[in-house]
Simulated assay, not measured.
Amino acid sequence: MKQDYYEILGVDKSASAAEIKKAYRKKAIKYHPDKNPGDKEAEESFKKAAEAYEVLSDPDKKARYDQYGHAAFDGAGGFGGGNMNMEDIFSQFGDIFGGAFGGGFGGFGGFGGGGQRRVKGSNLRIRIKLTLEEIANGVEKKIKVRRKVQAPGVTYKTCSTCNGHGQVTRVTNTILGRMQTATTCTTCGGAGQVMDKRPADADAQGLRIEEETVPIKIPAGVVDGMQLKVTGKGNEAPGNGISGDLLVAIEEEEHSTLKREGDNLHYDLYVSYPEAVLGTSKEIDAVTGKVRIKLEAGIQSGKILRLRGKGIPSINGYGKGDLLVHVNVWTPKNLNKEQRDFFERMQHEDNFIPKPERGDKSFFEKVKDMFS
């Protein structure tokens, strides 16, 4: 089981954005690769801290994590908010270290030898509509995505400004002596190389748009508004950069008869007065197909029948929700003379006078049970 993000950073859930940032910087400096060369455990702790900060520093991601835990980001088929590599970490959070490590980062985090910086391509965002049946069972979707990729024939050469180092070093004479500073090369953006040849169909970065079919495995139990990530299927970056990610937002389509409440489903079943009096069996909708249920004679309107395990699987792996069938006795509005005469004769009969039993729960008790 993955470690809690708040525990990794050593903060409470009520911590402010500033406290979270401060805690991350403290952890990141402690486990920084430059400070712990060759220490795999320190490197792993460094990555965990960056992964936690990536989620907790983003208000939207933090809200989803607080509600669903790691399941909000971890899914099948390459999804997840974690498993960050060094390029991801330094390309996103490199500035948080300030001057603690000079600027070269020892060749880590998107910086190659001599301080070269690996650029990350931009992310792409798509929205996928899912039926309740697809959400209940999990599904694989094949989506056509238009993404930027390296155009064939593009070549690069060493940047003449920084000589391939990605940084420009300047020496300044001061009253305290000669001071040396290193800044990112503005010509190549820190990549250490610039484009040499560019085909006609490529843009200024040597990229062109191509359509690609991306298979996306969506785990059962996702909820409306949840965002999943397919690593490396966003836009590519120029040169030796890293591809961005494909962010998949889930949109749940409304079902014709079933209403979702968390992992539980609700179904309104209408029965006629004779069916309620005599008892009957009914076939109703469930996400796994049709289900037949038996209604006992004399069933009361407002009765809730619970079909256990017929709801939505928990995305956290805690089993399945239930299908709650709400029985509604349909009272006829228009009667012919014969029907009216029958009910007029019956209205004072002992069997037709309401006599609630001890086991017949009130409306408020039923609501309480439904949410318990």
Rank of each mutant, 00 (worst) to 15 (best):
L9C: 00
D60M: 08
V171R: 13
V223W: 02
E252H: 14
A202Q: 05
G206D: 03
G107V: 12
D203G: 08
I89S: 01
W330Y: 13
L130T: 06
I135H: 01
Y68P: 01
M84I: 08
R178P: 04
H70N: 13
F105V: 13
V119D: 02
C162R: 01
E261L: 07
R146G: 06
P332E: 10
I126N: 01
W330V: 11
V248Q: 01
F343A: 07
S272N: 10
K310C: 04
E44A: 13
G234T: 09
L278W: 07
N328R: 14
E211D: 14
T186F: 10
V325H: 07
S301Y: 00
G279F: 04
N316P: 00
T213N: 05
V154R: 05
G317C: 10
H32V: 11
Y270K: 15
C162I: 09
A249D: 12
Y31W: 15
V194N: 04
K120H: 03
P59D: 02
G38I: 08
K333Q: 14
P356W: 10
D66T: 08
K141L: 05
K368C: 03
T257W: 14
R260F: 12
E87L: 04
W330C: 02
D88C: 09
D12K: 15
G81W: 07
G239T: 11
L305I: 15
R25G: 05
K333W: 03
F111H: 15
E349L: 05
K282P: 03
I209W: 06
P238D: 06
E253G: 06
I96G: 04
F93R: 02
F101K: 07
T172C: 01
G75D: 06
V171I: 13
R118P: 00
I143N: 04
G321K: 01
V329K: 01
F79D: 14
T331S: 09
G289Q: 13
T131G: 05
N173A: 12
